[in-house]
């Protein structure tokens, strides 16, 4: 870890001000090289600073903002609003979340460990960086995420944990989180504060595909801060779940996961939401698989067709080729489980 300036923000204007342009003359979109970083739970940031992957000159502590709306959970006619400084465990344990959107509660409950869930904020969670070991090990020069244009050590390296969907020729890093899959499946909006004011954006537009610029991971502009997630009411959100498949029973990132919400009418799919995790470069909505299932019965033929559709564009590598079949099996099992859920 390198020395850095620590700034404690007392409120939102204070936090945004700490991100004044002079702190970061490049004015580029946030990347590992950004000169200023927001600190909430710190479970990713501090980890990567210790590894020398992130070297911010200034760290702006925003934890005091949890005394504002950014630290609250609200549920009402407008749906569910989760403040960005709500801790993962708070949201996972919230009654309204558990009963109306089980997929959200489960995605949080199955992530990390109790200690980390107590620390990590929801805003920080969705911005968690990849676990690609070549990204996390600075003794490798060739990582396009860290050193744009340097190549990708993972492409032909040990890539069992990496992505098969949404990858590019420059990066196959997988998005590691769980909660984002729930948000994307539920058509959540993300509330973003910046120097020009607050804006709302579909959560699905937050993460960028790696393409030829994997160092730019989100569409946030410099200094912007996520303040909340807004999830619209979904009466059939009660029939939702998160299935996470991994080698061990807990404390591991997904090899494959599926966030499902299902609107069922006598065994026929009226509507369905599918998001996939562990297999993709960014939170992944399987929209074509959803379209295929609408109006159809939940049977083995349809499930297989939907799964095939969801992984149509998969680009497997040597050690992660199994993720195509595993991802399909996970999706089918999640849909079957959702269909047989007792509400």
């Amino acid at each position: 870890m390198r020395p850095f300036h620590y700034v404690k923000a007392n409120d939102l204007p204070g936090a945004l001000q700490a991100f004044a342009p002079q702190n970061d003359p490049t004015n580029a979109a946030p990347s590992v090289n950004a000169a200023t970083q927001y600190l909430a739970g710190g479970t990713t940031l501090i980890d990567l600073m210790k590894l020398d992957v992130m070297r911010p000159a200034t760290v702006t502590d925003i934890n005091a903002l949890d005394q504002s709306k950014a630290g609250q959970i609200e549920f009402g006619d407008n749906g569910l609003r989760l403040g960005a400084l709500v801790r993962m465990s708070q949201a996972a344990d919230h009654e309204a979340v558990k009963s109306n959107f089980p997929v959200i509660a489960q995605s949080l409950q199955l992530a990390a460990s109790a200690q980390i869930r107590n620390m990590a904020s929801l805003g920080g969670n969705v911005l968690q960086r990849t676990r690609c070991t070549y990204f996390r090990d600075t003794s490798y020069d060739n990582c396009n995420k860290r050193n744009p244009g340097s190549g990708c050590a993972a492409m032909d390296g040990m890539n069992r944990n990496l992505a098969v969907l949404g990858t590019s020729n420059d990066c196959i890093a997988s998005y590691p989180g769980d909660f984002a899959q729930a948000l994307i499946a539920l058509d959540a909006m993300v509330e973003i504060a910046g120097s020009a004011g607050t804006r709302m954006m579909p959560f699905a537009q937050l993460h960028r595909a790696p393409g030829s610029t994997p160092q730019i991971e989100t569409t946030l502009t410099q200094g912007e801060l996520i303040t909340a997630f807004q999830i619209p009411n979904l009466p059939w959100g009660k029939r939702s779940l998160y299935l996470k498949i991994r080698d061990r029973a807990s404390y591991e990132f997904a090899l494959a996961s599926a966030a499902i919400a299902l609107d069922l009418d006598n065994g026929t799919v009226r509507d369905v939401r599918i998001a996939l995790g562990g297999v993709s470069a960014q939170p992944w909505r399987a929209a074509e698989a959803e379209a295929l299932l609408k109006g159809k019965p939940i049977d083995d033929t349809m499930l297989l067709a939907a799964a095939d559709k969801a992984f149509e564009g998969a680009r497997p590598k040597k050690h992660n080729a199994f993720k195509v079949q595993l991802g399909k099996a996970t999706l089918m099992r999640a849909l079957r489980d959702a269909a047989t859920m007792t509400i």
């Binding site: 676990r131 390296g157 040990m158 069992r160 061990r248 807990s250």
Partner: peptide
Amino acid sequence: ALHEATEIDERNARYTNDNLADYLIPVNAD
């Protein structure tokens, strides 16, 4: 039986999963 293996990048003979998140061992839930 199920978890442990140090992964070695064949190209450079280096260990890649040299941390307790990626070098898997059972947790209580297992």
